[in-house]
Design a protein around this nucleic acid. Structure first.
Lengths: 339, 339
DNA sequence: AAAAAAATTGTAAACGTTTTTATTGCAATG
DNA sequence: CATTGCAATAAAAACGTTTACAATTTTTTT
């Protein structure tokens, strides 16, 4: 009978027993750094194979508190947002190429959950962390920075804290979108923002306002709506905008999910884009071209953000004294037919 | 100076020292199950607070080999596919409500990566695993089933292995899509499948063929294309279909990503949907209504799949002897204007 | 008041590693 | 031949927990 024991995880002790050596020797064989007699090595390797031995990562981490555990943490605010999924892919490709496993935590824009996950990550003895903090004054994340754990922030920075950072030119990106709308002749341009406390939301609002100002368009605060970055809230906010006595002729949406929510509302009302209302979104998606109509959008290099962040993190792990890097990537306005 | 030590993780020993008791007592205070004098408890709790003590999960897992480590593994084939993201959300909601953390692994349809992640998960002493195996004869996953680790498969089953399983009626779902097309009068209906070795692809093909047969439509094997479930491959396969001397008048796409790829190709060619070619996708997305045109699709309850799987897994962890459950959820055809 | 029972706390082992230190055997040196 | 040096290996400690068991104190019973 093929019993359960066939699959039981063998330990160093069992390997040592089978090979007739001490566990120290087995460990030396595995971590090829030290001298061991070729014959002994052969015996041990045979036993390892026979028992299908795999080192226990938990024990390894406990013992090697300060050495590498080959484990990185990732903390992201919203797995439903395709932007973060692309960031994640970038991280994952670099991580697995460098033999790091990922423990991925999604806090769904919920600070309580964020705290829980940060606790868990810390007590898992990860080598380093890539995080998009809930907001600029995220004390939990700041605490981690101060603890000395290698960390790279993505998409969102921290106020008054020097930390490795990868993000995009949010202000400039938003500016290019609104500038484009203004040049096309739209006058009442609305902005549906993500959560107000997120740095990127603030930067994008700044770009929006700067662009309006440069075009001599008066800022109407009724045209600025703050959501929670979730699809449901953005459909509602878009409805509010369209219900105004003097509704906007164009909408700039602050992120992926907001764009999709706004589109849904516009379509439900049977309005024509861009004739009745134009729309530009922050965040491009690879299927933006298949939307109705093909969407004009500010493209962020999401995959590259993740890639760069992972590279920075691994560098930081290997050299904790290297100077702090803030990497600001460019955005690109993809003009299609929604404007 | 606020130094690094302020944030250093305290250990049981330090708490015990500060409170003037043994580590066993501290442990008892933390794991509220056993008797300890109220005064002692107060002293210990004060020390815990003062040192900001948090139990080390790694040590806990190592010690409690057989007890709960409050850690679940999730192994998914493709994080870029919104279907799996929704499954993940369902899993995560249940997991975090039950105090389980998630270690999430995405193998990008790459069996080498899958193997690596399964190794890692096993050696992390997880309590249980939710996995979508690479294919029906995935020996690595079968090995895990045999090892006795609690596991629930989602979306894809295993041949000849009794294991908890949550999936949808793939055959019936595909049937309803193709039946719908046939009733609408389409005669040359193509199928762009995901990876051939995935059980769900096979089941959907079966549904496709059964529906055609029931409508007396002859099966043309040139109209069946097999991709790798990635966006790039599906654009190419769609091109091949449209380039045929006798091209299809309707396409049934095997999953989310394939649908988006096919749409892209059709739009690039300036073809009208559904006049020039109709399309039904397997997998609905919450923004399907915003596509051009609003997409007719077979909806899978992805979130619920994840939720049910996590519930089953937790049950299994708590009672390894309960009988195996295969849960088959219904699909729903969302008729919009792409057909 | 002595014995028994119950409550509280402490001691030590164990989980599976890595690594420091100690031991062994053997060749080279004087 | 006695000493030294080196290579190979073993022994033991440590990482931070939980828990079985032992020891102590307090309470109850007789």
């Amino acid at each position: 009978m093929v019993g359960e024991n066939d699959y039981k995880n063998a330990s160093l002790t069992e390997v040592a027993e089978m090979a007739g050596v001490s566990i120290a020797t087995v460990s030396r064989v595995i971590n090829k750094n030290s001298n061991v007699n070729p014959e002994t090595r052969a015996k041990v390797e045979k036993a390892i194979k026979a028992l299908n031995y795999r080192p226990n990562r938990v024990a390894k981490r406990l013992r090697n508190k300060n050495a590498s555990s080959n484990l990185l943490g990732v903390l992201i605010p919203d797995i439903q947002n395709p932007f973060y999924v692309d960031v994640l892919r970038g991280i994952e490709d670099i991580a697995s190429a460098n033999n790091y496993a990922l423990i991925m935590c999604n806090f769904s824009q919920d600070e309580k959950k964020e705290e829980m996950y940060l606790d868990i990550l810390q007590s898992e003895s990860i080598d380093g962390l890539i995080a998009a903090p809930a907001h600029e004054n995220d004390q939990k994340v700041i605490g981690i920075v101060n603890s000395g754990l290698p960390i790279v922030c993505v998409d969102r920075g921290l106020a008054n804290v020097d930390v490795d950072l990868v993000l995009v030119e949010n202000r400039a990106g938003a500016y290019s979108a609104v500038d484009h709308l203004a040049k096309k002749g739209y006058k009442r341009i609305a902005y549906i923002s993500g959560m107000k406390q997120i740095p990127s939301s603030q930067q994008r609002e700044k770009g929006y306002i700067d662009a309006l100002r440069d075009h001599g368009i008066e800022i109407d605060s009724d045209l600025i709506k703050y959501g929670d970055s979730r699809h449901e809230s953005s459909t509602k906010l878009c409805e509010e905008l369209l219900d105004m006595p003097n509704p906007p002729d164009a909408i700039f949406t602050g992120n992926n999910l907001i764009t999709l929510g706004a589109l849904e509302t516009i379509h439900k009302r049977g309005l024509k884009i861009p004739e009745d209302v134009a729309i530009v979104g922050f965040d491009d998606m690879y299927w933006s071209i298949s939307l109705n109509p093909p969407l004009t959008a500010v493209r962020q290099p999401a995959y590259e953000i993740g890639k760069r962040a992972a590279e920075l993190l691994i560098q930081r792990i290997n050299d904790s004294s290297r100077s702090v890097v803030n990497m600001i990537l460019k955005t690109e306005l993809m003009v299609r037919s929604s404007t």
